[in-house]
């Protein structure tokens, strides 16, 4: 097991280098130097441009800049925000909590709803319950979250007045954004749960369990689900990336704080240190979650380790 974890960690290194390289190069490709466009707006002189370029190290050759960027990034230092003139690290730290709260809540909703719908559909295969569950899941994958979010705001905040339409902090303000984000992921989890459970329910050991007189509930939850869950866990891990990406949109719709909102704003303003920091931190979170899923997977299903 230990060697499996170490091997899995070693594969991670080139991927992390690749990610940091892409994130850094994106800034290098940026059309019209970010500094130029900043000073064009604020009306700075050529000397200001020179000074700022030096301050941000933009006068150095590409690889030197990348090296500096990488060595600082490993320590969590992404420099100063170009626009807000505050350290990127601090800004991310301030906003991280809200995004973690949102994605975790959405994750819980998507797992509960997704597995629930998937199991019900699989058990009642071919009936109207199955059709309804799969129709709900089709709606979930087809609805753009910025639209479903606005519909929820319209109904529950503006018309019924039950929940706040915007803002961060507090349980009430979390419900609508989390449901919006969770529903889209739930749809995919439901589909995978259904097909993977149907697959398992057709296997011999399930028939054996039924033959020895076990009740339906024990067969489904005790025997079949255990194996069906192996596939579901992978999808949940992958969906986490969708949730992190979706958080950008949901945070904008609900006017919430968070890394996603910070990233979108930074891209609009060409604030490259902030873009680099937010994108790297989000991607790292996704990579680590998938690493955790892989390791859990190795524990759950020992066959994977030796593959």
């Amino acid at each position: 097991m230990g060697s499996f974890v170490i091997r899995r960690l070693l594969i991670l290194i080139p991927v992390l280098v690749g990610i940091s390289f892409l994130v850094f190069s994106a800034m290098y490709l940026l059309p019209g130097d970010a500094i130029d466009s900043l000073l064009a707006e604020t009306g700075g002189s050529t000397r200001d441009i020179e000074r700022l370029r030096k301050e941000f190290g933009l006068d150095q050759p590409f690889l030197v800049q990348y090296g500096t960027f990488l060595s600082r990034a490993v320590r969590g230092d992404f420099g100063m925000s170009l626009r807000q003139r505050i350290p990127v690290k601090g800004a991310i730290k301030d906003q991280m909590g809200a995004t973690i709260e949102l994605t975790l809540a959405a994750l819980v909703i998507s797992i509960g709803m997704g597995i629930g719908l998937g199991v019900v559909a699989a058990i009642r295969r071919g009936t109207w319950i199955d059709t309804t569950a799969m129709f709900i899941s089709l709606i979930g994958v087809s609805m753009p979250i910025f639209w479903s979010g606005l519909l929820l705001i319209f109904l529950f905040s503006l018309r019924l007045g039950w929940l706040p339409a915007a803002g961060t902090g507090g349980f009430a303000a979390l419900i609508l954004p989390a449901v919006t984000l969770g529903f889209s992921a739930a749809a995919i989890i439901a589909r995978v749960t259904r097909s993977s459970l149907l697959d398992v329910l057709g296997q011999d050991y399930v028939r054996t369990a039924r033959a020895k007189g076990l009740g339906n509930r024990v067969v489904v939850w005790g025997h079949a689900m255990r194996n069906a869950l192996v596939t579901v866990v992978t999808i949940v891990g992958l969906q986490f990336g969708g949730l992190l990406g979706g958080a950008v949109v949901v945070e904008t719709v609900f006017g919430r704080q968070g890394i996603g909102f910070l990233a979108a704003d930074a891209i609009r303003q060409q604030d490259f240190p902030m873009v680099q920091g937010t994108v790297l931190v989000s991607t790292l979170a996704f990579v680590l979650v998938n690493l955790a899923v892989d390791i859990v997977y190795g524990f759950v299903d020992p066959r994977i380790r030796y593959a």
């Binding site: 991927v15 990610i19 190069s25 940026l30 992190l244 950008v248 060409q270 994108v279 989000s282 991607t283």
Partner: peptide, 21 residues
């Protein structure tokens, strides 16, 4: 693997950042 490591929309957003809106 590197492309897949970016969460959903973020890779597209990073590309927009590089190429312009």
């Amino acid at each position: 693997d590197v492309l897949l490591a970016f969460p959903g929309l973020l890779l597209a957003m990073l590309t927009i950042f590089a190429l312009g809106v």
